[in-house]
Structures are given as C-alpha cells and as structure tokens.
C-alpha cells in the first residue's frame, strides 16, 4: 500500500557555511542487504557542530528485528538475535532518530544504504529524510582520495587510514559513525583549500555528494 505524502525532516539552510551548520552522521547495521526487506539492528550517531565532534553527544542503540539476521550480516557486525532479545523495536526508537536528524544535515558513508533503511523506517511516522544527504564516500571520490577503486564504494576503514585518521571500532554502528564524522571534517577541510575566497557551504557538500555518487546508487 502506498502511503500518503511524507514530510521531509527539516535541514539547515543549504547556504550555511559548513563550519556553522550542524550535522548528524549516522551509521546502521542491518539484518542483511535487501533494502526492501532487511531491518536495522543497531544505529550509531555523532553530531558535528562548529566543525567539532563532541564525544559526549554520541548515540548508540541496538534494535530487535522482526526477521532473522543473515549469516553474512552477523559475521560483519557480530550481533546475534539472542543479543538483541531485550532491545527495543525500531518503532520505539523513531522519536530518538527524528530528534537526532531534524534540523541537521544527514551524513553517512555510502549514504544510499542508510537512506533506504531510514526512509523505510521513518515512513511509518509519515516522515522521510531530506532529499539529499552528504555522502563521505562521494566526497572521497571527488577529492580523489577513494583509493582508485573505480566502481566499488571506497571502504571506510581504508579511507580513514589513508587520511591518517584514527579508526574507531569497525563494523560497529557507533564506531563507523564516528570514523565517518572524522572523515567529514577532514574532507570538508580539504575542500576549503582550493577556495579561500568563499566558504564551503552545505550546498557544496550536497552537490559533490550528488555528482560523485557511487555506481550502486544509479538506478
């Protein structure tokens, strides 16, 4: 059944210089990679404010899915159904997710995955994400720091190491969200290099994210 028109979550004015805007960097772990059927088992979020990541404001939540976790997904994130037996359903976490994302620029690494899962979850509240997200994988491609992997999405861990950034617990939603947030700081700072006259704005980050999206997102 098709739902009614869904309201996009509010975002800052795209003309805002990135150093003045707030971002919510989010990462999900799921039961599998089927964008239509699989479900979120955990999410982690880091806020970027004044171009800084406050460690005191990070969020990590585990969720109890209604379908089994695929073996493939389990070997990546290590979460089993038994670990999540006491966790909340995603419906119960939607208010928190909306609170995290509303008024902030959404950011993820290979953002199309996060967009698909989040939009499906938010739909039950009659909400959706903003039309565009900032995608650190696209920023890597635009700055030619993707390691020349051609069609594949540049790996988060490898990219962080190439930029000499610390890697937080990989394949853990919060660890990856935090590493992604650092990537955002480093890449946006690098984008400022070429243009001392004008500040890099949120719109610039959106534009790069759209023009350098990964092959999988072209549908």
């Amino acid at each position: 059944m098709r739902l009614r028109w869904r309201r996009a979550l509010p975002v800052p004015d795209p003309r805002t210089p990135w150093r003045e805007a707030e971002f919510c960097v989010i990462d999900l772990e799921t039961t599998g990679l089927d964008l239509r059927r699989d479900e979120v088992v955990s999410y982690g979020a880091a806020i970027v404010r004044h171009a800084r990541i406050p460690c005191g404001e990070v969020v990590y939540r585990q969720l109890r899915p209604s379908r089994p976790i695929s073996i493939g997904a389990m070997t990546v994130h290590g979460l089993r159904a038994a670990d999540l037996a006491g966790a909340a359903r995603i419906d119960e976490a939607l208010d928190e997710l909306v609170g995290l994302l509303a008024g902030r620029v959404p950011v993820a690494h290979a953002a199309w995955v996060e967009r698909a899962f989040l939009d499906r979850a938010l739909a039950r509240h009659g909400r959706r994400l903003h039309r565009v997200m900032v995608d650190t994988a696209a920023l890597l491609r635009a700055t030619r720091l993707d390691g020349g992997q051609g069609g594949r999405e540049p790996g988060l861990e490898a990219a962080a190491r190439r930029l000499r950034l610390p890697v937080h617990t990989p394949h853990h939603a919060l660890g990856d969200a935090f590493t992604t947030a650092q990537l955002l700081l480093a890449l946006a700072t690098r984008m400022e290099r070429g243009r001392p006259a004008r500040a890099v704005t949120v719109a610039d980050l959106y534009a790069v994210s759209r023009h350098h999206h990964g092959p999988t997102a072209e549908r």
Partner: peptide, 11 residues
C-alpha cells in the same frame, strides 16, 4: 574525560 572531548581537524 572522553565525554568532554571534542574532535577538531586542522588543515
């Protein structure tokens, strides 16, 4: 301590 840390990146 960690909860009070803010991470910043410098060119």
């Amino acid at each position: 301590l960690v909860a009070h840390v803010e991470v910043e990146y410098f060119a």
